[in-house]
Design a binder for these strands. Sequence first.
DNA 1: GCCGTTTTCGGCCCGACTGTTTTCAGTCG
Length: 577
Amino acid sequence: MSNATIAEILQNIANLLELQNADHFRIVSYQRAAQTIRGYGKELVEIYQTDPAQLLSIPGIGKSLAEKITEIINTGTCQYYQELLGKTEPGLLEIMQLRDVGPKKTKLFYHELGIKNIDQLKQAIQSGKLSELPRMGEKSANKILTAIEDRATFKERILLDEALTIAENLIDYLKQHKACKQVSYAGSLRRRKETIGDIDLLATSDTAKNKTALAEHFLNYPATQRVLARGETKISVLLSNGRQVDLRILQTKSFGAALHYFTGSKEHNIRIRERARKMGLKVNEYGVYQGERWLAGRREEEVFAKVGLPYIEPEMREDQGEIELAEQQKLPKLIQLKDLKGDLQLHSNYTDGNATIADMATAAKAYGLEYMALTDHTKSLYVAGGLMEKQLETQYKKIDALNKQLKGFRILKSAEVDIKKDGSLDIADKTLAKMDSVLVSLHSSFTLDKDKQTKRVIKALENPYTCIFAHPTGRIINQRRPVEFDLEEIIKAAVANHVALEINGQPARLDLHDRHIRLAKSLGAKFVISSDSHSPSSFGYLFFGVAMARRGWLEKQDVLNTMSVDKLLAYFGRKTK
DNA sequence: GCCGTTTTCGGCCCGACTGTTTTCAGTCG
Ligand SMILES: Nc1nc2c(ncn2[C@H]2C[C@H](O)[C@@H](COP(=O)(O)OP(=O)(O)OP(=O)(O)O)O2)c(=O)[nH]1
Ligand SMILES: [Mg+2]
Ligand SMILES: [Mg+2]
Ligand SMILES: [Zn+2]
């Protein structure tokens, strides 16, 4: 029973409760617990098996939720959930997901017109029945019809790199207008979540007239398909690719407060606002107030300062303990992209890369790196033209020659060594001993049972040559589920055997990801951040790897490829020499 | 349903936009 599944059940309970006449705050309790569990590093099953009472130490989980979670762990579901499911028309949940339709309207349609599913809702709109309901009219009904049409397309969340490109293009466009004083993206994109729901933008302008002008400019953006809402300070549009963009336009004196508000997360915002309230202050997107009096809001730092906290980096703002650390002045100094000195996973045209070793080295150097490890695939991965021992050794001679020519840059001998089904490596020790770094990963037998898979990986990590375990869970966002194994046991084996865990920067991988990184760090693990480049233009993926590392609260010293090449070679040399 | 350095009961973040409303509920951020 994964945390994701437990969270899903609690979220479903919250949704079902909305359709009952449940107390709002009770619903919120289920939602908050679901949110916390979704981002929790440790598996709740693990906590429960060690000491069930520990469940109560998780914020937002009390006696009642702990009992339900226990039941879910033991039986896969819980009585309460089943009862709620039993007394709810299943189609109502789908109706409630529609844009501009919430629990109140869903219930109204059901009770007044007996509407049980989207098809019936559509019919009621087309026959004009829906607009006759209290507080409903033509416009509301038509909006719902549009929401039904939009529903099928574009519901998936997008990857971080795609969202970043959309946002940067929009920002370039907004900046072209002279009424635009400041502009930034916010929301989950600024927090660098691995997937992004919508694009949140914030701009400032000085006068009312300029705000209007800037709003007009935004609406003229060529990729805008449809305006969802337009008010004095906030505009929501749908781009032609179906992605929603929310833009807020405020005064420059509110930029910091608005950026803080719009960056979120929602849970973090609520904590900050509760804190302000206890201090006799009020925080909103316009600033920090004492009564009617505006105290601050130009910069984010001021908002934090007014509530007695140091600046908290956006990547940490998830209410997963960052506020407590901030209170104690114990916030980590997060790693930055410029701290990286090398890249320890990338491919050349010896296997499935598209460039020569020399071209990859030139590109890596141009990106600002001092070294790179060439990690072409090994023989088991014949689809990628994986290399045999002999071919690897030939490649290493080539690397020796290249290294003689290169100034201020070093190519390390490595490989992405395949872990076979039995946990052994597919390259002979004699060749492993010639490598500067041995990176291992799974490419097959993803569906072994959990126990076998765990043992298989641990065996590979115990191999004395193994230095790095790459893209550990093997997940590909929106495409492939993570391998089933006991990650906590694997992390412990990695720590015991001095094997670093990779944070793969490919936007569809980001593996390990935020919550696993925090868990691994708490268990004493070391990390490497890799681009896994298959072309010279892909070193930018390091940015996304660093983003994940920051969401995992990592500092420079947690990441091995922040070391100079000599230190790194000495570190791995304990294994390979 | 959760939580507590003034509380074990009584609070629980705060605001924008829309449509249908004559004063605000519903939904969303
Ligand atoms: N104070 C407060 N802020 C909120 C609330 N809902 C949203 N926000 C703020 C914080 C969010 O990060 C920000 C943008 O809202 P979004 O719905 O776009 O969420 P976010 O970007 O975090 O995630 P997403 O990837 O878009 O699903 O607005 C709320 O209920 N209260
Ligand atoms: Mg968003
Ligand atoms: Mg948004
Ligand atoms: Zn490859």
